[in-house]
Write a protein that binds this DNA or RNA. Structure first.
Lengths: 152, 152
DNA sequence: CGCTTGCTTGGAGCGCACTCCAAGGCCATA
DNA sequence: TATGGCCTTGGAGTGCGCTCCAAGCAAGCG
């Protein structure tokens, strides 16, 4: 049972923390990587199954041994995940990298498109922020008398 | 069959468009509201079922007739949705509004928390943007020689 | 009158991104 | 040697946010 970290010090499952690698080594177990990335070991194995990860080295007993390069890749995946990019698209990107140098153009396109998406997402959020600020100001002062909500 | 808009002019299902109400009336059918908000009629009915909407007026034949206030509420819901707020939390907010004036404090808290979430979300995205920009620059010039990706 | 269009309902189904389970292997410490 | 901890696998299950289905009713038109 309990295949989770073993290095947990916080009770309430903080998401990504416990980062930074000991950086003298280049070989990590799955639970170490789980601790570094905030992903679960389940998720790491799942990423591999769906083709989002490169072939990970194995110890003589068949256990996964992640390299620093693998962790770098996971960092990028984490960032892309934050943009809301679907996992399928990340898998596509991974495939392009695997396929070699002739896919540079396509990869560039994909990153550029993602960049555009992130920019418009930020704009959306700033828009929403403005709405939120107006509503909060409303609550702050005239609120009680004026706020016109809908439900009831 | 085909209970969709009837006012579609674009082929490829653009997300939110066709906004702005005719603003002389105060009573809209479900498919009009679908066209205004970009939500489907299914989703509108579902929102009602789960308690995210107020009780919507009905015509003498039992069909929904949305008011401008209802559309205002849907606009707010749309914004909150963009922040990634879970539907359950929006339902909670709707409940607070329904419960009356004594929930002002709690509502304020909820909006403030959401505001904080949006701010940190924006920061995250800007962070990601920086990573993306570096990677794109990489691809732009030295890319071919230097880019160190992971998969293979 | 019959047909079409748009609406109604409760409940089932779907896609995504995990999340977990059962059954078993390896190895270190007591 | 036995116990516990961490690892392995394929496949099943979960939660969220829709999305759709079947059956049926009411209004408008030829």
């Amino acid at each position: 049972m309990m295949e989770t970290t073993g290095t947990r010090t916080d009770t309430c499952a903080g998401p990504p923390r416990a980062d930074r690698r000991p950086d003298g080594q280049d070989s990590y177990t799955i639970s170490e990587v789980a601790a570094f990335t905030g992903l679960t070991a389940h998720t790491l194995r799942w990423y591999e199954r769906i083709g989002l990860m490169p072939h990970i080295d194995r110890s003589h007993t068949g256990q996964r041994r992640y390299s620093n390069r693998d962790l770098d890749w996971l960092d990028l995946v984490g960032k892309l995940r934050l943009t809301g990019m679907p996992v399928a698209d990340m898998v596509r990107y991974a495939e392009l990298v695997r396929e070699g140098d002739h896919t540079y153009g396509e990869r560039y396109e994909l990153l550029e498109q993602t960049r555009r998406d992130v920019l418009s997402r930020i704009a959306e959020l700033q828009d929403t922020l403005a709405v939120l600020d107006r509503k909060i100001a409303f609550y702050g002062d005239a609120g009680h008398a004026l706020a016109s909500e809908r439900p009831r």
